[in-house]
């Protein structure tokens, strides 16, 4: 269940937007794609999901080109959730989650008992079982996003690609969602590849961070190795101060914003400490709200 990219070029019309020479995404890891607006991260994600046709190069799953997979077989292995999908009118939560079973259904598209069981499990795992009969239009943003995640889960795909799953959610719901994804990834050994716009959020949850700028990967590695002011300056033009936190035995960097690159020369060098500093131990979400 390994996604491989080789000599990939993606274009919008005549304009080339992404060039990735070599990329191997190992299974059972969380990979986060970050970068400034328009850097091509969503485009790359869609190519990894098989939704964009490359201008050149290949994207393959387990050695087979994405384009040559039968759509249903591919869907059983790989699931994609776009940014802010349209909320369907008038269907219940359960009906929406049940759509995730499509790649497993036969010619008559009838749901078997097993299918119903999986749907039920998916709703339990995402904590929305109590909402199963609610109209999806009446849910809050957080509940709705969890419903989409449940649909993806029902698909039973090993690789899950998410395009900015936390956009438009408030802080609390963002944290809830990210914890859910982390939990699922651990328990089900999923491969999660997601585009995030928040560097710190990415640092918190990623096993591997891919930073893109102008369609190229400029940083690739575990967050503690790649995240610092240098990266934030290159990606966002933002000077930051890195703090390390230790969460569940991992070192998780956090970049505190200082100011835009152009503005900081006004601040005397001596006042700016761009080195890593040791703050008081910060507690993780799980330590505050034990499950």
């Amino acid at each position: 269940m390994t996604l491989t990219v080789s000599q990939l070029r993606l274009s919008y019309g005549a304009r080339e937007v992404v060039q990735v020479t070599d990329l191997v995404l190992e299974p059972a890891r969380t990979v986060c794609l970050i970068g400034p607006n328009g850097c091509g991260k969503s485009t790359l994600l869609k190519a990894l999901a098989g939704l964009n046709r490359p201008t050149a190069g290949i994207v393959s799953l387990d050695g087979k080109l994405l384009g040559s997979w039968d759509p249903k077989s591919l869907a059983r292995r790989l699931a994609f959730l776009p940014q802010s999908p349209t909320t369907p009118q008038g269907i219940s939560v359960r009906q929406l989650v049940a759509h995730g079973r499509y790649p497993h259904l036969g010619i008559l598209s009838r749901h078997s008992t097993h299918d119903h069981e999986i749907v039920g499990w998916a709703m339990e795992a995402t904590g929305i079982a109590h909402l199963c009969r609610r109209d999806v239009g009446t849910l809050s943003g957080g509940e709705r996003q969890r419903t989409w995640i449940a649909m993806i889960l029902a698909q039973e795909a090993g690789i899950v690609l998410l395009d900015e799953p936390t956009t438009y959610l408030d802080m609390g719901h963002q944290a809830e969602l990210m914890e859910l994804l982390a939990d699922l990834q651990r328990k089900r050994r999923l491969t999660i590849i997601m585009v995030l716009h928040d560097l710190n959020q990415a640092s918190h949850y990623a096993d591997r961070l891919l930073a893109l700028r102008d369609g190229q990967i400029i940083a690739d590695g575990p967050p503690r190795d790649v995240v610092d002011s240098h990266l934030s300056e290159r990606l966002f033009g933002l000077v930051t101060q890195r703090i390390d936190r230790t969460l569940s035995g991992r070192i998780v960097p956090y970049c505190l914003p200082l100011g835009p690159v152009a503005a900081t020369p006004a601040i005397p060098e001596s006042k700016v400490d761009k080195n890593t500093i040791e703050p008081a131990k910060v507690m993780s979400y799980l330590e505050v709200f034990p499950q």
Partner: peptide, 16 residues
């Protein structure tokens, strides 16, 4: 029933 979903979601579900 599935066709009310977005294009990308449908493609992800393996629907032609």
């Amino acid at each position: 029933d599935a066709l009310i979903l977005d294009e990308d979601v449908l493609a992800s579900l393996g629907i032609r």
